[in-house]
Design a protein around this nucleic acid. Structure first.
Lengths: 212, 212
DNA sequence: AAATTTTTTGACCGATTGGAAAAATTCTAG
DNA sequence: CTAGAATTTTTCCAATCGGTCAAAAAATTT
């Protein structure tokens, strides 16, 4: 019998293990070459098995991508989910920014694959964007608006604020090549994330206006 | 004779015209599907000619991409080149941010193709990144540092400031699908760029600290 | 209008692709 | 140990890919 997507979850131990190996290999390949730029052979080799063997676990190339994307989106939104209406507004936002930056540092492959899908127009999960994602952002935007109304943070568009947090932090994963090239050898090392954290903290807190 | 890359530039009128048509079509296709995801047939069809006819003007797929990337990078950096050391610091930076945002609005295909290349690790112009780009950013970072030293703007890392400007503005082109999905029908229309401009102006000027 | 050069087309090629089929092997339960 | 199920490998295929080539068709020059 084939082992692919049945209503019932993977049954045997070997199925769970191999599926995990394949998804890890596929993430590596997809994030480097994009969906169409990756071949099943590449993924199979990275997973240490033959192509037909891989196709025994996932019956098509798209069936490999789908669970990866689902998992990424879930992981990706976790920091935003934790934004707490009861917390102290500014530290709450700072902590969100820091966590997003840490994700760019620790999971660059996920970030790049996600960006790749966005560039392609997100053909596979545009419904998720319009439902789960929009709902979550709507909810958190409302919280942020409440903070603004109570004078806890400056008034601004909460949606564009969230976009700014996403873009500035993800930039360090998606444009890593460019960032390291521009920073050069000395400043482009591991310390760049701490420098980025410091800068973003100041930007989102005070902007560029000089102190008086 | 073939019409492709000779030391001498395109000679005939028809060559200039067709090469332009091809590059425009290739930008459209490449920006949608990425380099490996695009086929010469697709580009040829978009350009209204047969594949062998296209290959008469550009002898390989990479030979089509190269001039597009060169042009994009040049266009892309123009706003930064214009950052004027003699200008008024804050308005100078605001104007830079605004121009970059306008480019995301007016040239989203170019932005997405550029992002695509970055995600791939910029195999074709990593040398440009380490030379022309780094030199330009170094020069402008020095200008910005001068402004900080004279107390005209707040002290911060000028490199990460430039990254923040790039990422926040380009986000509206590269993640357009996501931005529009999250903003919804009413707020996701043409007005989103004006909202973004207003928000970015405030973010880079004052950040989120509440007014006292 | 004839000669020559440039442009376009149709037919084709070898390599690679995603995937199917079935045999061969390994694992597991009785 | 043996039957049956699960896993893996070998072989193969049709479609698509980037690219070539020679000949036809336009365009240009003389």
């Amino acid at each position: 019998m084939s082992a692919d997507t049945d209503p019932g979850r993977p049954t045997t131990r070997i199925q769970r293990e191999k599926q995990e190996v394949i998804l890890e290999a596929a993430l590596e390949i997809f994030s480097q070459y994009g969906f169409r730029g990756s071949t099943i052979d590449q993924i199979a080799e990275a997973a240490g098995m033959s192509k037909p063997n891989l196709l025994y676990y996932f019956k098509s190339k798209e069936d490999i991508l789908a669970p990866i994307l689902a998992r990424i989106l879930d992981t990706w939104l976790e920091p935003l989910r934790e934004l707490d209406a009861e917390g102290d507004p500014l530290p709450e936002l700072q902590s969100y920014i820091r966590r997003k930056l840490e994700m760019s540092r620790d999971y660059p492959r996920e970030s790049r694959l996600f960006a790749n899908e966005m560039l392609r127009g997100a053909p596979d999960f545009s419904n998720v964007l319009h439902n789960e994602l929009k709902d979550l952002v709507d909810e958190k935007a409302k919280i942020i608006k409440g903070w603004m109304a109570r004078g806890k943070i400056a008034k601004c568009d909460p949606y564009h604020l969230i976009f700014a947090i996403w873009s500035t932090t993800q930039h360090y994963a998606d444009f890593d090549i460019q960032v390291r090239a521009v920073l050069g050898k000395e400043r482009g090392g591991d310390g760049r994330f701490e420098d980025a954290a410091r800068f973003l903290d100041q930007l989102f807190l005070h902007g560029l206006s000089p102190k008086k």
